[in-house]
């Protein structure tokens, strides 16, 4: 029995908790991609760099606040900086939309042209972030490091395995839940949210019933900017802020959105967790858990790691391909234009 508990604790510590935090970050990112796809009808390659931009503003404001001596006690100061960063990112994406995307929307350009345009935006945003903050790792988390630390947990329970919950992991999950709840309330209950869903379902009908498309697009960009900034900041807090990493997140984020069904917010969330859990479980060395759960005679002598962590992209990729081949609209029926 005690062995079983030890195994369970090890499993939570190394697989469940990191995967839940990572999944929440992916889900927030995928929600942004899916909203753009649903309303503006293209895959936004600049999303990763939008996240990087938002996180960068958070980092800068956090540094300024820390310099002023402001802190949130046990919580990271970055939470205070977040609203400023959201506003800055909203301004940036609305400006981009006005200067770049609007022209193609009016022309009714093909989606693939918009994807190429978003590649140009990606270059600019990436250059901007590198220009302002450079390419190096930046640390900006402060406050209490752990909610539960390994030592405390061991003392509390007397188990051999420890369990640690980082503050950033706790915050990630709470913030993600709040964001998702707000988003769904907005989409389902408010007039603007309903008009967004109507526009996404059937553009012509929505126009006929007097919905102003430019307003819908503007709200979409604002929500996407907020989600991207929050996702980027949470990822940066949990790991560390490095501009290039956000570009690499593009693949798991797209995979999450597609697996769930592009254009479907519920699917994006499910997709985020599916991708995160598969990545973590497949690249985790199971020896630690199995040594508690299996009888001694069966104890494995290798690490029982299915794939090395460097191949985590392969995991999202394989899931993506399998879903695309067998269920192209995703698990929750998305759009297939």
């Amino acid at each position: 029995m005690i062995d079983f508990l030890n195994g369970l604790v090890a499993l939570s510590n190394f697989v469940l908790i990191p995967a839940i935090a990572y999944g929440s970050q992916l889900a927030l990112g995928a929600l942004g991609v899916t909203l753009i796809y649903g309303i503006l009808r293209f895959s936004n390659f600049a999303h990763g760099d939008t996240m990087a931009f938002g996180a960068m503003v958070t980092v800068l404001v956090t540094w300024w606040l820390q310099g002023m001596g402001v802190s949130l006690g046990p919580l990271p100061t970055a939470l205070l900086a977040l609203p400023v960063a959201i506003v800055a990112t909203m301004a940036l994406v609305l400006f981009t939309d006005r200067m770049v995307y609007k022209f193609y929307r009016e022309q009714k350009a093909k989606p693939v042209i918009l994807v190429i345009v978003s590649m140009g935006v990606m270059f600019i945003m990436n250059g901007l972030v590198r220009f302002i903050i450079g390419v190096n790792d930046q640390r900006f988390s402060d406050g209490e490091r752990f909610i539960v630390s390994v030592r405390e947990f061991k003392q509390m329970t007397g188990l051999r395995e420890g369990l640690a919950i980082k503050t950033t992991q706790g915050i990630t999950v709470i913030v993600a839940v709040v964001c998702v709840a707000l988003l769904f309330w907005f989409l389902n209950r408010t007039r603007t949210g309903k008009s967004m869903r109507a526009y996404s379902d059937n553009e012509d009908l929505a126009l006929l019933s007097g919905i102003n498309p430019e307003r819908v697009v503007m709200y979409t960009w604002m929500i996407v900017a907020a989600l991207a900034t929050i996702a980027g900041t949470l990822y940066g807090l949990d790991k560390s802020f490095k501009p290039f990493v956000y570009f690499m997140l593009l693949l798991p984020i797209f995979a999450s959105a597609i697996v769930g069904g592009l254009g479907n917010p519920l699917g994006a969330i499910a997709g985020g967790y599916i991708i995160a859990f598969s990545e973590v479980t497949i690249t985790y060395a199971w020896k630690k858990v199995l040594k508690y759960w299996l009888p001694e005679s069966l104890e494995p002598d290798s690490l029982v790691q299915l794939l090395s962590t460097d191949y985590k992209f392969a995991v999202s990729f394989v899931i993506l391909i399998v879903v695309l081949l067998f269920k192209p609209t995703g698990i929750f029926k998305g759009k297939s234009v």
């Binding site: 895959s43 994807v115 690499m248 693949l251 460097d310 990729f317």
Partner: peptide
């Protein structure tokens, strides 16, 4: 697959090829 699905699939393949060569 649709054009942007192909884009994402190829983006993934490229990363995997690089990961294989690195590891």
């Amino acid at each position: 697959l649709r054009s942007d699905y192909l884009a994402i699939a190829t983006l993934g393949i490229a990363e995997i090829i690089i990961a294989v060569m690195k590891n």
